[in-house]
Design a protein around this nucleic acid. Sequence first.
DNA 1: GCCTCCCGCCATGTC
DNA 2: GACATGGCGGGAGGC
Length: 656
Amino acid sequence: MEIKCLSLKDLLNIRTLMNKSSFDEPGSINEQKENISMERKKTTPLKSESVTGHWKVSSLDIAHITPIKHPERAHPDPWTPTANLKMLSSAASPEIRNREMKKTLFRPLENEEKMIEEEVEMDESCQYEASDDAERRPSRKQKSLGLLCQKFLALYPDYPETSESISISLDEVATCLAVERRRIYDIVNVLESLMLVSRSAKNMYVWHGRSRLVQTLQELHRAAREQGYHLQINQREEHCAYAGTHVLSAHTSSRRKDKSLRIMSQKFVMLFLVSKSHTVTLDSAAKILIEEGQDESSDSKYKTKVRRLYDIANVLTSLNLIKKLQLKEEKGRKPVFEWIGPLGFHNSNADEPVDYSRKSLGSSEAPRIQFEESAALPSVTPVLPGMSFPSVPASTPLAYLPQTPLLMLYSGHLSEGIAHSSPPSKHLGKRERQEEDEEDLATQRKRRSVSIESEVAETESCSSRGRNSPAVSREMSPWNMAVDEEEEGASGAIDGQLSSHYLYVPNTAGLNSLKFLMPGGHTQGGMPAVAMPCFLVPSPLIASSMASGSEEVMNYGFPSMLSPARFVMAGGAYGVTEGLSSPDHHGNKEAGCGSSPRASGTPPLLKTPVTPKDAVLGSKSFFETPGDFPALTSQSAARKRGSAQRRLDVGHFSAN
DNA sequence: GCCTCCCGCCATGTC
DNA sequence: GACATGGCGGGAGGC
């Protein structure tokens, strides 16, 4: 396979070719060049130049050698950085052009307004500088890390072609963006924490884009649960108090590398992923991270941590993974960030690009949003043949909801996290929200299509193994995270018992013979009162019920009725399906995937979490080395990353 | 007055 | 010793 290696230099060459004909506007641009150069002279830190001496050239031909910068040539062409980026993006490829167009079209309104405002300010500032350069320095906003990160991201495609190897020279980027390299480190470190880039050599990174983002987040989510972060963050966010007692990590260190921005970024993201509300306050995050490091919780440590979290948050905001909310308290503002990135990723489609980036999807708008339309449908898990039902407290009756195209199993209370999970949409106009919902539903259908297929395959595999697999039951649902959090985070039911649970069954091909167990009566002590606390719901009954359902209310893209499936709805702790999708399993009273754990009185399938301490011990290596992902970087063990100056880990990304 | 976060010093580690 | 990396906190702009 031919590998195309694109660097910023290539992009600049492309731009140069296009430069002469249409972009070389005389006058104003050259004036801007002069202005910027003058500005650069003023703002370039003299100490950096004198101390390091490596900012002496601007030649782009020396990609792997630290260029020397001539201050007067810091901006080798007449463009503003913004103009540069637009040109580069447009020139590089139709894909990038489309992406830029998409950015413009789908950029969240708030960001768009901000960007326009900032661009105007940028242009204005350049003009001002022509006449009054001493007083018209760029504002802090124009120099913000978030804006810088947006410019950085605009240089590269979200989903680069697999045949392309896009190299990033830190010096080129720094020169192009007219910032110190130090700032680029800040951005790159966060991007690296999410595997958007990986370091390939000194001063060099490889751009991966978002192609690995979902997988990375999946790993982070898993690791977060293993680390017991869900207990930490949910407890904190609920009580909003710093007890300072729940030191979650036995693996602590105050070593320099453990304070790396990369590690901190990963931890920060992990908190979002396991937070019930998918919101994290900087306060909570800072305190949790301070605890982890066993740093003395001095005020200065806290302030430093918050500073870094602001840096990280700005980059994540630019990535449209989080957005800032503002929680007003009596004592001033309280910065809160909400996760708006992908949720509910699971193994099967981890590699599938999910373009959430240009359309801000609040956590509430993620897969669960449609269920908010009905207050009785907070959390949904697709039920598949062979899937074992998680343990459901028997004291909470299950209900069958016939007025929907879905068969629902419900137990327990309304999910708190879900019930409060749609703040962004509340701020939208009706039409906007409708459009958003429609788009979300379309996305849902697509995801569902993928997930169901893979889940069926997974289930069949499970069946062949003849036993229920925790991994299958956990990973099966695109929304399993929400369920998990309800199971383990909110209720604190570490034993894995669900405090509430919904199950639905779409009429998906291959599920026609699916059957469910339904509670046949009360249970005692979490165990069924009768040996088989279930009763069969004849398929025709279900079908007729489904046929009367209102699709207008809940049209999720599923068929309006369930076909001749036989269902047994299960209450109590019984995750037992009476049949499987395969006709081979008809009549098999035991779960399709083998022995029910309840049959032996064992706890439910969901094994995690263990205690934080145990989890930490069990996954100690996760943060052992900065940037190392056990599952993402298989060669990580062979690498030893330093802290200040990392050793070159060329090719470590090939693990993926 | 507090929030936010830019800026750059300088420690650490690699070559 | 030179250089890459990046932790860190002062301090100022912004709200």
